[in-house]
Simulated assay, not measured.
Amino acid sequence: MAEFVLVAGAWLGASAWDDVVAPLRAAGHGAHALTLSGLGDKRGMPAGQQTHVQDIVDEVERRDLRDVVLVGHSYSGIPVGQAAQRIGDRLTTVVFVDAEVPVDGGSFASGWWQGQEAFEAQLTENGGYWPPIGAADLDGQGLADEQVARLIEGSVPHPGATLTEPAVLTRPLGELPATYIKCLLDGPEPNDTVATLLASDNWRLVTMDTGHWPMFSQPTELARILAAQAD
């Protein structure tokens, strides 16, 4: 059985995975949801992007995990992709859940759809943090009112340095064994960087008919897809 290490995207901590952890464990897998520095109950801790990479590597090594499936959602695909290259033969595969992926020398901000300058201006206006989204931003994402409430309740301002520091890759990302889960309500196609990676023999695409936060909207189905990656 696999050991899943689950890392949520911006603003969120380990509790985002509560409804995914339970079915994974019921299927006999290990499931370890991780709160990154500066988020959740670690709010206020200083954090840059490489802090988050080290958080993930430390979790794997501290627990002495083997047969690891690293799972990164949204922003956290960037540190997860880097950590996957650093845990050696402990890794079975990495799963990107509607996620950004690391580009050597690039950052989350450098890939922002309105441009890096516009994104960094948001951070400056909010004291160096990316403010959480509100309920109106979650419309059309397949979330029930209760799920929206839980997502917002679990969100805190996201440390800006984690979004602006550059990624560091030790080898081409396409060499990793990987699955990309595209959530179709958030857009029908992966971005160009992911599309290029999916041309690799090591990468595969899975789609979900839900929005950007499937750990809230379709946790049982997400757990099923994740468990299938360990086969």
Rank of each mutant, 00 (worst) to 15 (best):
A2F: 10
F4N: 06
V7N: 02
V7K: 01
A8H: 14
G9P: 14
G9T: 10
G13S: 09
S15F: 07
A16N: 04
V20P: 03
V21R: 02
A22C: 02
L24D: 06
L24A: 08
G30K: 06
A31L: 05
A33I: 06
G38F: 03
L39K: 01
D41I: 13
A47C: 07
H52Q: 15
I56C: 01
D58Y: 10
R62F: 14
L65E: 08
V68E: 06
V69C: 07
V69P: 02
G72V: 13
G72I: 10
S74A: 14
I78H: 01
Q82M: 15
A84T: 11
I87P: 02
D89Q: 14
T93P: 00
V95M: 01
D98Q: 03
A99V: 06
V101D: 03
V103N: 09
S107F: 10
A109W: 04
S110L: 14
G115R: 07
Q116W: 10
A118S: 13
A121K: 12
Q122V: 15
W130A: 11
I133F: 12
I133W: 12
G134E: 11
A135I: 06
L138S: 02
G140W: 08
G140A: 10
Q141A: 12
Q141G: 11
D145L: 09
E146I: 04
Q147K: 09
L151H: 04
E153C: 08
S155W: 01
E165G: 03
P166D: 01
V168N: 07
V168R: 07
L169K: 00
R171Y: 15
P177L: 08
P177V: 07
Y180L: 09
I181K: 03
K182G: 01
C183T: 06
L184N: 01
L185P: 03
P188R: 06
P190K: 02
A195K: 15
A199C: 14
R204A: 08
V206S: 08
T210F: 05
T210P: 08
G211K: 00
H212F: 08
F216E: 00
P219A: 07
A223L: 06
R224D: 14
A228I: 11
Q229K: 05
Q229D: 12
D231M: 12
D231L: 13
